[in-house]
Simulated scan of single mutants.
Amino acid sequence: MADTAIFDVDGTLVDTNYQHALAWYRAFLRFDIVLPIWRIHRSIGMGGDQLVPSLTSDEVEERHGDALREAWTEEFEPMIDEVQPFDGAHDLLAEVTRRGFQVVLASSGKSEHVEHFLDLVDARGLADAWTSSDDVEASKPAPDLVQTALDRVPGSSGIMIGDSPWDAIAAARAEVPTIAVRTGGFSPEELRDAGAAHVFDSLRDLIDGLDDTPLARARA
Rank of each mutant, 00 (worst) to 15 (best):
E115T: 14
V103L: 13
V103Y: 05
L92I: 08
K110W: 07
D122G: 11
E112K: 13
S107K: 01
F101W: 14
Q102V: 05
G125L: 03
A129L: 07
E112S: 13
V121L: 09
R98W: 14
A127D: 06
L118R: 06
D119Q: 06
E95L: 13
A129V: 08
V103F: 10
E115K: 15
G100K: 03
G125W: 04
L105Y: 06
R98T: 14
R98M: 12
V103R: 11
V121I: 12
A123N: 06
D91M: 15
V96T: 06
L105Q: 02
A127W: 08
D119M: 08
Q102H: 14
D122P: 05
A127N: 08
L93Y: 06
D91C: 12
A129E: 13
H90N: 14
D91G: 11
D122F: 11
L126M: 00
A127F: 07
V103D: 04
G100R: 07
K110F: 11
A94H: 08
V121R: 04
T97N: 11
E112Y: 13
L105T: 04
V96L: 03
G109V: 02
S107L: 04
L120S: 03
A106H: 06
E95C: 10
G109Q: 01
L105R: 02
L120W: 02
E112T: 14
A106K: 02
D119P: 01
R99L: 02
V114G: 00
V103I: 15
L126W: 00
E95N: 14
S108C: 14
H90F: 08
R98I: 11
S111T: 13
D91S: 14
A94K: 13
T97H: 15
D91L: 15
F117G: 12
E112C: 10
D91T: 15
D91P: 12
L93K: 06
G109W: 00
F101M: 08
L105M: 10
L118T: 11
F101T: 03
E115P: 05
G125E: 09
S108F: 05
G109A: 05
A129S: 10
L92M: 10
G125T: 09
G100T: 08
V104H: 01
L120V: 04
V96R: 01
G109D: 03
R124G: 08
R99N: 10
R99T: 07
L120K: 04
H113K: 06
R98F: 11
L92K: 05
D91E: 12
E95A: 08
G109T: 01
D119R: 09
T97F: 12
K110N: 11
D128N: 10
D91Q: 15
K110S: 09
A129G: 07
S111M: 09
L118Y: 04
L118D: 01
E115Q: 15
L126F: 00
G100M: 05
H113G: 03
H116G: 00
F101K: 07
V114E: 01
H90D: 09
S108K: 07
G125I: 02
D128R: 00
R99V: 03
D119T: 13
R99E: 07
A127H: 10
L93R: 05
G100N: 09
E95I: 11
F101R: 01
V103G: 04
A127R: 05
G109L: 01
R124P: 05
